[in-house]
Design a protein around this nucleic acid. Structure first.
Lengths: 139, 139
DNA sequence: ATAATAACAGTAACAATTATCATTATTAAT
DNA sequence: ATTAATAATGATAATTGTTACTGTTATTAT
């Protein structure tokens, strides 16, 4: 019902999200958008991030360490988090098929209906793998 | 290094966790253990829950709605959350094999190393399914 | 131009969790 | 058994991430 009005702050937040392939937190968004809008409020950032999520133009990525990140890429995909550097990286594989298999396995001994899942993968990212290999060689 | 001393409060917290197949939050643990220890502190509950997690005697279950639950069952298994009643239920299927398949699919176009995943399943639990079917018939 | 109001900045309030600290309970040594 | 050392406690203060409030500003429709 309430008509949406345009706002430069919201544009800046959305553009920042789209421009980044990593997954900034509200604080990181705030820090960057503050450069363009020196007295933007942290509340405005939170309000617009939720708003964008509601509009389906961004997605909320709650990590198991309790931190909440935001993703400008709303196409279905899974996330990976590096145990070394905590970076969150998009994974690129056939979500549809794999998820279907995974859900049918999960439904095996369950009397309810499973219609979705949220997964996070963990391990070592390519960057950190390189660093660790270099350290090994130096020994 | 620091020697662990026994505590009745910790026992009560652990026993409560083990006794429950649902997955209480810190507040719920506090509410129940308070019956036996009327002036236990909420801080003590949080402290011991983390401690039990560190000892590998409990696990932390952070849900994507931001709430944090605790599980006395530390054997590897997945969780399901009902969209209707928000209950968290253990799923019983062959984790090892399924996870292996899932991880190898996820690793497809990724140069890092994936060694684990955390997944949450969503849908309708058996209880709520029943209720919804009854409602349908009444129409 | 003007009026209506969505969105703002600034700030207060909030909920969940963690830290502090003086007191109590548990353990190990006498 | 007493005692000494200290882990753990209860009570409370502090912290963090987020949401709500309020008067002002910016956007849109008339």
């Amino acid at each position: 019902m309430a008509a949406i009005k345009h706002s430069k702050q919201r544009d800046a937040i959305k553009n920042f999200l789209i421009s980044r392939k990593d997954h900034p937190t509200a604080e990181v968004v705030y820090a960057h958008v503050s450069r363009e809008f020196p007295n933007i409020s942290l509340g405005t950032v939170y309000r617009n991030l939720s708003f964008l999520v509601d509009l389906g133009q961004a997605s909320k990525v709650p990590c198991s360490d309790g931190s909440v990140h935001f993703d400008g890429n709303v196409s279905p995909h899974y996330h990976f988090q590096c145990r070394e550097c905590n970076a969150i990286i998009d994974l690129d594989f056939d979500v549809k098929k794999t998820e279907k298999d995974f859900i049918s396995a999960a439904s095996e001994n369950f009397d309810g209906v499973i219609d979705g899942n949220v997964s996070f993968f963990y391990g070592t990212c390519p960057e950190c793998l390189k660093k660790l290999n270099l350290l090994k060689k130096q020994e």
